[in-house]
Design a protein around this nucleic acid. Sequence first.
DNA 1: CGATCGTTTGACGGTGCTCAATCACCGTGG
DNA 2: CCACGGTGATTGAGCACCGTCAAACGATCG
Lengths: 268, 268
Amino acid sequence: MMQQGQSPIQSRRMAERAGWYGRPVTPAGTAGQGKLSDLLQVMGVASDERPAGEAYAIPVRRLRTGASLFHEGAPADHLYVIQLGNFKTLRMAEDGYEQVLGFAGMGEILGFDGLSKGQYQTAAAALEDSRVYAVPVRALDTLRQRVPAFDRALQAAVSRELRRACEIADVMSAVAAEVRLARFLVQVSSQMVERGQSPRRLLLRMNRRDIASYLGVAHATASRSFGALADAGYLKVDNRAVEIVDLDGLKVCARNTRGTLEDMAARA
Amino acid sequence: MMQQGQSPIQSRRMAERAGWYGRPVTPAGTAGQGKLSDLLQVMGVASDERPAGEAYAIPVRRLRTGASLFHEGAPADHLYVIQLGNFKTLRMAEDGYEQVLGFAGMGEILGFDGLSKGQYQTAAAALEDSRVYAVPVRALDTLRQRVPAFDRALQAAVSRELRRACEIADVMSAVAAEVRLARFLVQVSSQMVERGQSPRRLLLRMNRRDIASYLGVAHATASRSFGALADAGYLKVDNRAVEIVDLDGLKVCARNTRGTLEDMAARA
DNA sequence: CGATCGTTTGACGGTGCTCAATCACCGTGG
DNA sequence: CCACGGTGATTGAGCACCGTCAAACGATCG
């Protein structure tokens, strides 16, 4: 199980060298400030619009791997847009158990859930060295009024965040662990497509523990599920580098809300 | 188990007669139209503001029990605010399995997740006879610009919807079925408080099947969990009428991300 | 090269899913 | 008024799957 020797990819470092999930167009790195127009571009607004707000400067925050962007319960004074990198959002149960709610990448918005109560309802932590635009909540109304493009982008981003929120329910509604993992991988694959990258070669930024938490299973079970999907011929797995060999098959597998891989094989 | 004879509440009808979860202040029922000021009131905006938009009339839709407000994938042309009644939001898996994503009551917003793609990403169905304000998406921008109070209310409602979205993750992150149910009941209880009603006497509007789907367990398991919590002395259950006898105890139980009721008893 | 963290794999016991029967409740129609 | 069918809730039996515990292995970094 989990082919070792003949696999073309041996380690994460090698994977990155080989150009797996090659870094997207990295916006030229400005230090502590960013232009509003860059922010809008990251958020996916057509750049041929030249809004009046060109002059606005947006603070940029840098975070190292593992650093937390904001904590659950902290006063929600900023709204963040990811310029570069990847994050996880999570909630801490009172008994210290950490529930991962989702993963977010470039262009996605973080912290909006804090607006209604003035406190963040979730926490966010960087999965790798990252940069975010930090939009002060106090400036939100002004910005939205003066720059309609920003307003629209914000609305779309929030709606997207809502969609993301129900993806976790999608995953957890499956009973079998392998099916949950299959759904997760299909989600990641779709996001790759949205970003104009290969839907088959994934380099997961999060560790098994985070994935397991997101799937709602034990981390040992998550690991076994990777093995099961690999054995079934859907994937090639090497640590965090995952190649989807049979995407259609994986999607069929992901459909099965009830029943396991065995049942699928029996049905065929 | 599940005390029968001496229970003060025998049936749902009796429960309603007895004033359990007595209907909230029902806004005077206007037929096909509603005033914007009423809408704002339902959304929880202080009513002493008298916005310029008083003249706006908002269409009102009525739905009978079980009727669906919108389907998944349908063009998202309206945003809905619940005037009266209760709804469930759900997604249909390709294999026909129905995953309940959450429940929404008076003042809450439905359909916002459709804005980014122009199609509803979830479906919504009435759990009882209900009424909703139907705000045309095309009128959204205008309305928000002309009536700042509406804009703020909308932003708060969306943020609230995001909070609701992660409640399901909260529930599902528990391993034991009884703990999931306990968390759900604590959620419902909290909502009762937010609406200024008794946190102890619940009249659930949804059937066991919907609850089970929301909890991510089989409906037989959901039923057993009600029994278990009742046996443990936290609840009195009579069909959809639930009285929380020991709210603090229930909250303690809800904390246990891992481990079951047995473990709690052993620890004490 | 050692230390630490992350991943994989094993064994075992328990929980919950499936299937199915029974019961309670309700509206209908004879 | 009661017999009847339909829906929803509860309960039971059996077995597979997954969570817990534990150990070995692999990767990464100083």
